[in-house]
Structure formats: C-alpha cells, structure tokens
Amino acid sequence: MAGIRSVLLDRARRLGPERQKLIRPGWQRHLLPGGVAFVMLALFVYALDRFGFGFARIWNGLERLGFIIGFMLPPDPKGNLPAFAWALGETVAIALLGTLIGAILAFPLSLLAARNVMTNRIVQFMSRRLFDGVRGIDTLIWALIYVNVVGLGPFAGVLAIASSDMAGFAKVYSEAIEATERNASEGVRSTGGRRWDEIAFGLLPQVMPVLISQVLYFFESNTRSATIIGIVGAGGIGLFLSDTIRTGEWQQVSVLILMILVVVSVIDFVSARLRFAIIGKRG
C-alpha cells in the first residue's frame, strides 16, 4: 500500500489551477500583517524616543530613589497612628459604599444596554455610548467635580467612585448578559412566565457568578483608587499621603504605604474566599 504522503502529494499535483493557488498562495499574503507589525514597531520606537526614554535617566533616577527609600527607614508614624488608622478606615468605607451603590444602580442600566434584553437598537446603542462616556472620565476627575458640588469630604469620594463604577459595571454586566444562553429564558417563557420572570429565573442565575466576582474585583481596585482621590480632598488616607510626601516626612510615608498594602492584601484574601464561598468551584 502506497504511503499517505506520496498519495497526497500525487493527488496535489493533479489538482486544478484553483487548488494550486492554495498550495502556492504567493508572498502578498504577508504584506498586510507584515506592514502592520512594521508600523507598530516604528510607532513604539518613535514614542520612546519622543518621551526621552533613556537608560541613563533611569540609572540616575535609581540613585535618588535609593535616597528616598533610605529616608523612609525605619517607618515611624510620629504619633499620628490613630489619625492614619481612622483615615484608612474612611478610605475602605468610601470604596465599599461607592462600589455597592455603583453595582446596584448598574444592574437596571445594564439591561438597557444588553442586546438580547433591550430589543430597541437605538436605546441599546445610546446607553452603551453613554456608559463609555461616563467611564471615559476617570474616578479622580469625578472626585474633583464632586468636591466642588457637595464640598470636601468622604461623601464626594463615594459619589465619585459610584459614578465611574456604575458605568463600568453596566458595561461588564451587559456583556455578561449578552453571553448567556437563551435556552433557560426560553424555558421560562414556554411555561407562561412574564418577561421579568425570564430575567429573574432564566438570565440572572447565569450571570450571577460574573456579577459577584466583578463586584469583588472592583472593590479591591477601588480601595486603591480611594487612596488617590483623597489627595484632591475627597476624604480618606490620600490627604495624609500627599501632605507627608509634600513636606518630606518620609518615615510617615512609609507607614502609610505599609498600612495601605496590608489592607489591600487583606481585602484581596477575603474577597477570594468570599467569591469561592458564593460562586463555588465553577466560578
């Protein structure tokens, strides 16, 4: 019996001109991917050059970084520990409240933006674009706006996080909703269920794991954001951080950084446990 290779090669030789094109597709097919790769590389090199990227600058900066780290040691709160702890608690509270408010408001909005729930294309498209717009404005900028609207303090921080998160959540939720299988909703409809029943019993159980893990993930990342927005006066530990950096109190800066690190990793750990407990192995 003839080998597979020789039989196939023999067959290939006898194929018509259309098939020969498949065998010898020509170098032109590399033109587009090659061109794109070249342009990307050129842009990358150009941008590095324009931003004055240089190993010499990094090297010189390293020396200064070394000095700063030296000033930070040993960490010493200089008696401000209670104030720091209170402010850190405020930061976590801002993150938690902002995330929860954003997550709750986002759910009805996400239904408007999900193609398989909102059949009106215009509403669906417009709400998507609206979320993109709101999301396009960073939490820090929202904080600056709300500080002017409701005054300095944690309330402005909560509003800032809720605003930008609402849009972020709505986008993620609506994509999760679009990725669901229709079967379960169809099953609910076939039993004579209402539209809301379809959403509550067909759709929600499918997206719940995604929603929960997104909320936990946003909460983690918002704890970091909440330290930053404190710098513009929206409450929390950020104000202390910017003040001590400005006045060169490096030993206190290191205490603040360590506190933030501990809290963020605790939240990380707890939310991983929570996610596992709520969603189970399949999450």
């Binding site: 196939l8 090669l9 067959r11 290939a12 098939r19 498949l22 097919r29 590399h30």
Partner: peptide
C-alpha cells in the same frame, strides 16, 4: 505562527481537503 508552511505541507493539506471534498471551503 507566521504562516510559513512549506509548499509540501500546503500540498498535503490541500490534497487532504480535496479528498474529503472540502477544498472549496479552504
């Protein structure tokens, strides 16, 4: 990954597709 299969590889693949009558969908 760079789609640089040899002519022999392409000939074998094309003939295999032709054998199962799927070359039109290549």
């Amino acid at each position: 990954a760079l789609n640089l299969f040899s002519e022999e590889d392409r000939a074998i693949a094309t003939a295999a597709l032709d054998l199962v009558d799927m070359a039109d969908y290549a």
